[in-house]
């Protein structure tokens, strides 16, 4: 009974909490820019509003365009079941493998890029092109940063990865920090944040993610926005739980779980703040400088892995 409940929370928390996460970032950014800003629940209102709006679909669009939002959204939710949120003992051995999570997210990327190309708009096409470029280059860093954790904990199951204490093995501290550096760069790339992408822009020359969903409206746009919030949340959760596995519930004990949820919330908020600070203090990079950043991420991770089993 308890496990069912916990699993339900695990399932639901990604789609339920993720808009909040986006809202927090927006709010922080506004505060940093000396603006009032919308409330942190504004994303929920946006999604709700979009869900009830009429839609316009291009006559060039095929079923890919129509179904992509559902598939992308599903992919993020499924990926969400594979990562530890507040309880590491929920060892999901069925879909909790790091490669499964990464490739499930790739399904989303794949359909997102296809949807971008589907309407024949010039924006969608280059958006997809840029998105695929960035995500292709981010793949190495992403896999390797999670792999560092997996090697430290002796399993590629992400839940187990978050179960080992950060200082449980002293010598794994440095690899983890390095890997986190790498992971953080990938996080920014994959979730379309500064300096890779500007989530708030609609300027033709710079947008990536927005370009692909330019043709969407109504409920499909809502799902797209929601899915991207999910993705952000998933990455934030991975960053906080895999690299800083403090406070996460190690057993099905109610107190531990509540403590886990609390620490998780705090960690997420901190992450949101970090991202907000970063976005406010940094300029967007020129597109062709991004690969350097991603290669740096990969190299950091290679070094990290090299240090996991020093000879």
């Amino acid at each position: 009974m308890k496990m069912t409940l916990l699993w339900t929370i695990q399932f639901l928390s990604v789609p339920v909490i993720s808009p909040l996460c986006a809202g927090i970032i927006k709010k922080f950014k506004a505060l940093l820019q000396n603006r009032q800003g919308p409330g942190i629940f504004q994303p929920y209102r946006d999604i709700g509003k979009l869900l009830y709006k009429d839609e316009v679909i291009s006559r060039d669009a095929s079923w890919i365009f129509r179904y992509a939002p559902y598939i992308i959204f599903t992919a993020t939710v499924v990926a969400g079941t594979g990562i530890p949120l507040f309880a590491s003992f929920l060892k999901n051995t069925l879909t909790g493998d790091l490669l499964v999570v990464i490739y499930t997210l790739s399904i989303g990327t794949f359909f997102l890029a296809l949807a971008g190309m589907d309407t024949g708009s010039a924006f969608g096409g280059f958006g997809s092109s840029r998105e695929m470029t960035v995500s292709a280059l981010a793949e190495g860093g992403l896999i390797f940063s999670l792999l560092t954790v997996a090697l430290v904990s002796g399993t590629t199951n992400l839940f187990a990865g978050s179960g080992t204490g950060m200082f449980a093995i002293g010598r794994s501290f440095l690899p983890r920090i390095l890997a986190f550096g790498g992971f953080f760069i990938v996080l920014l790339a994959e979730t379309g944040r500064f300096p890779f992408d500007n989530p708030a822009t609609h300027l033709e020359l710079t947008m990536i993610h927005e370009a692909m969903i330019l043709e969407y409206s109504g409920k499909r746009l809502a799902l797209m926005e929601w899915a991207s919030a999910n993705k952000l949340f998933i990455f934030a959760a991975m960053a906080s739980n895999l690299f800083f596995p403090w406070g996460i519930a190690q057993g099905p004990d109610t107190a531990a779980i509540i403590f886990g949820i609390t620490t998780f919330a705090i960690k997420i908020i901190i992450f949101c703040m970090v991202i907000a600070v970063l976005e406010s203090s940094m300029a967007k990079f020129r597109f062709f400088r991004l690969p350097d950043l991603l290669i740096i991420s990969f190299i950091l991770n290679v070094i990290a892995i090299g240090m996991v089993y020093p000879l």
């Binding site: 869900l51 009830y52 709006k53 009429d54 839609e55 316009v56 679909i57 291009s58 006559r59 060039d60 669009a61 309407t119 024949g120 708009s121 043709e215 109504g218 409920k219």
Partner: peptide, 12 residues
């Protein structure tokens, strides 16, 4: 969620 809204086919 939405039963009342319409889907319009338009141009890109």
């Amino acid at each position: 969620i939405n039963r009342s809204q319409r889907v319009k086919i338009g141009e890109t």
